[in-house]
């Protein structure tokens, strides 16, 4: 690309000036990780405009993408400047991915900024990449930032749970309420959406969810999230209920602001990011030790029975820590 030749500061400057191509480039830097990403973090931290982060999750086929498209259109109509991060799994075998969520987001969302993110195999990758991407979008003036994930798999659920407002989408007639419960989606929901509400089973699903929410009152979950999650009925195809959903999201934001909870959620996100960064560094560090002569010696000793695995782990950690000081 033309901007390959530019250095990071130039790209940051262009991105801050609103150039979408530069924003796209910075997102790649953040996603890739490594030294350049670290420099980017340093350049952008503190420039945060503190955008509202909205997580939207639900099972495949629940019409999430169309819903997200509609939601961004509603947000844009109310004067906001939304962006979307659409997260999809990479193939564990090849590392490749087919990212197709934006087709439906584009068609209903108009000129919204959408970035598709593959989970990429590496450990904790998303836990660094997504906060990095949020930082880029936040600093370059997007608000709200909507993160769409498939509500299956712990990583995806965790990502959605990181948001200020987490929206869980379910579909009538598919046993979604039960599935959502099993997947742990009930615990993370600030707002429920019953999409395809024109289907006859929509009311039954709403009642299922209400019953589960009655239970969450008992378990104390409701107190933890700060309120009982409202249930919004939508039809993403026609757009019915989208304005109401947008209003619920805004209301939730106000509620969080009023109770200082938004800062708390941001702090939790930052903490999770730091944890992931630390874990990543330790991972790389120990991998380097394994490849060193000390690591090979420890493994040989382990194989011959001279030391046990716990002792080997201590040696690796000591070596790694020592190399930090050097």
């Amino acid at each position: 690309m033309t901007q390959r030749g530019l250095d990071l500061d130039d790209i940051v400057e262009r991105a801050l000036g609103g150039q979408r191509r530069a924003v796209g480039r910075l997102l790649s830097v953040a996603e890739r990780g490594g030294a350049e990403a670290d420099r980017l973090t340093a350049a952008l931290h503190g420039r945060s405009a503190r955008a509202h982060i909205v997580g939207i999750t639900g099972p495949p086929g629940s019409g999430k993408s169309t819903l997200v498209g509609r939601l961004t259109a509603a947000a844009a109509a109310s004067g906001a400047n939304p962006a979307v991060l659409a997260v999809d799994p990479s193939s564990p075998l090849t590392g490749g991915a087919i990212l197709g969520d934006r087709i439906r987001i584009d068609r209903t969302g108009g000129d919204v900024f959408v970035r598709s993110i593959a989970t990429r195999g590496h450990a904790g990758g998303l836990a660094v990449a997504v906060p990095g991407a949020i930082r880029v979008l936040d600093a370059t003036g997007f608000d709200p930032i909507i993160i769409e994930t498939v509500g299956v798999g712990q990583v995806e659920v965790d990502i959605a749970a990181m948001a200020d407002t987490t929206v869980v989408v379910a579909n009538p007639g598919t046993g979604d309420a039960v599935q959502a419960n099993k997947a742990g989606l009930l615990e993370i929901a600030d707002i429920f959406v019953v999409n395809k509400a024109d289907l006859p089973e929509a009311e039954a699903l709403r009642l299922d969810l209400e019953r589960m929410l009655d239970l969450s009152h008992v378990t104390g979950h409701e107190a933890y999230r700060g309120r009982r999650a409202p249930i919004v009925l939508t039809e993403s195809l026609s757009g019915t209920g989208i304005d109401e959903l947008w209003t619920e999201i805004i209301d939730h934001r106000s509620l969080l602001d009023a109770s200082n909870a938004r800062q708390l959620r941001q702090l939790l996100r930052l903490r999770a990011e730091v944890e992931a960064l630390v874990a990543g560094r330790i991972h790389r560090l120990t991998r380097a030790v394994f490849d060193s002569s000390a690591g090979e010696r420890a493994l040989a000793d382990l194989a011959s029975g001279r030391i046990d695995p716990v002792a080997a782990a201590e040696i690796i950690l000591d070596e790694g820590t020592a190399s930090l000081g050097s």
Partner: peptide, 25 residues
């Protein structure tokens, strides 16, 4: 995908302008 690429699949009925916007983003 099987060769390890990330495919941003836009599928059918795209306009030239939309493809440009997608390439940027």
């Amino acid at each position: 995908r099987d060769a390890g690429c990330e495919v941003i699949y836009l599928g059918l009925r795209q306009s030239v302008d939309n493809v440009v916007a997608v390439v940027e983003q």
